Computed example of a mutant assay.
Amino acid sequence: MARTALISDTDPGVVLSLSNELYRVGFTEIEVCHDGINAVDKAFGCYPDLVILGLDIPGKNGLAAAVEIRSRLKIPVLLLAERCDAEIVKRAADNGIAAFLTKPLRTQDLAPAIALAVAHTEEVEVLRERIEDLKETIEDQKVIEKAKGKVMELNGLTEAAAYRLLQKTAMDRRKSLRKVADEVLGKGLY
């Protein structure tokens, strides 16, 4: 399976070292650019599996480019820096940046950083999906509870009886309980 990486840094030696190591660990295509604006454009054009950005690249610094890329692509992004302060690390962490690599680059650090970044990014995405599912479930429950209350009020039913009526209607109509609840609230079904 083809794996693509995007590298953006101004140091040709670093780009060459990163490229060689990425090929060694299984990447088959390496896209290269030397500024943040092109990095963002290339990322949105080639949808790489991994992005490595120099923190001090021109046009748009690496952190700004990384934040923009991460906002649309749920892929691991690593930053490469000679130094970084606590504020930059916090901003990077808050925006889903997977790891920092330091210059001078030690190629033996790259494979573990990539492995951790990929695992971390996948884990975060699974958690985000779960959160979205839970939000949807909570919203469904709120709507169902409102519909149940309306059915209780209109028909003089107990809570349990109103819920059973909603469930039976959903089964009879082969619709979800949420859709029946929406109908009750929107059309005054009962």
Rank of each mutant, 00 (worst) to 15 (best):
V124T: 11
E132I: 00
G13V: 03
C46M: 08
A160Q: 00
C33H: 01
V32N: 12
E82K: 02
L127N: 09
I52V: 15
K150P: 05
S8G: 03
K42M: 12
A39L: 03
N61C: 06
M152T: 09
R173A: 04
E153F: 13
P104Q: 06
A39F: 05
G186K: 09
L53E: 09
G54Y: 13
A99N: 14
G59H: 10
L116M: 13
L18Q: 01
L157K: 05
E31R: 14
D11H: 12
S176Y: 02
L101D: 11
D9T: 04
L134Y: 10
L157P: 00
A64L: 13
V77G: 12
D11T: 05
D94W: 00
A65M: 15
K187R: 09
V25R: 03
G96P: 13
L110P: 08
G26P: 08
A39W: 05
S8C: 11
L80R: 03
E87N: 09
P112I: 14
P58N: 06
P76V: 10
R128M: 04
Y190M: 10
K187W: 03
M1I: 04
E68S: 04
R130E: 10
G62M: 07
S176M: 01
S19R: 12
L6Y: 00
T28I: 07
K42P: 07
V180F: 10
V184K: 03
A64C: 13
H34G: 01
I7Y: 02
S19L: 00
T107P: 00
E132N: 06
R178E: 07
K179M: 07
N38Y: 02
I37A: 09
T169W: 04
A98R: 03
I88H: 14
G59E: 07
D133E: 15
E183P: 07
S8A: 15
M1Y: 09
L53H: 07
